[in-house]
Simulated assay, not measured.
Amino acid sequence: MLSKESTGLIITDIQGKLARLVHDSDALVSNCAKLIKGAQVLGLPIIWLEQNPDKLGSTVDELSALLADQYPIPKFTFDACEEPQFMQAVRTANVDTWLVCGIEAHICVYQTSLHLKQLGFKVQLVCDSISSRTLANKNLAITKLVNRGVDVSGVEMCLYELVKDCRAIEFKDILSLIK
């Protein structure tokens, strides 16, 4: 079970034209927004990544507006764990579990999630908050990661798992995100 005391969120490369070209783009952005808002309500550490932002563009406005109090970590490797600034943020967050969302599922999300798992972190792929240009590539990423011990969750499932109790102070805010 997830615990808000030991869980963080990684937002991977939801930027530029590519964010609008991936399979079911509108749902991806909407679900990522819910996930970000939920993480903020629950006080989770959030790490925000952008792949080669000078070439691919910045994070879509709907999400960057939610993250206005922090800056994205630029990266050039597909596996964010190869970027020292990312690994410093991971260590500083002091959690052992990471929810991962973003694009592209079969490239950056896959490589980063797998490397985090290999480093000993628990990783939960938020499957309704990831995408690729094709559904087949998204499904391939999920299958390969599950086969390597990465857990799969969804926005609603992980947020309710984190809030735990309808009497929790955060429950009404989480409920309003889901409805």
Rank of each mutant, 00 (worst) to 15 (best):
A89P: 13
Q85V: 09
V146H: 03
A141H: 03
G154V: 11
D96H: 13
E104I: 13
V109T: 00
C108I: 04
G120V: 02
F121Y: 15
M157F: 09
L162D: 07
Q111M: 06
Q85Y: 07
V150C: 07
S129L: 05
T97H: 14
R133N: 07
E156Y: 04
E83N: 14
E104H: 03
R148H: 12
N147T: 02
R133Q: 11
Q85F: 08
S131D: 12
V109R: 00
K117N: 11
H106D: 03
V163G: 01
Y110V: 06
E83D: 11
E156M: 06
I103M: 12
H115W: 09
L145Y: 02
F78E: 12
L162G: 07
T112H: 00
V155Q: 03
F78R: 14
V100S: 06
K117Y: 09
L99W: 02
L125N: 15
V90G: 09
A93C: 07
P84R: 02
Y110P: 06
Q88P: 02
F86G: 05
G120A: 08
P84E: 13
Y110C: 08
G149R: 00
V90Y: 08
T77G: 08
M87F: 06
F76R: 13
C81M: 06
K122Q: 15
A136W: 01
I130W: 06
S113E: 02
L125W: 07
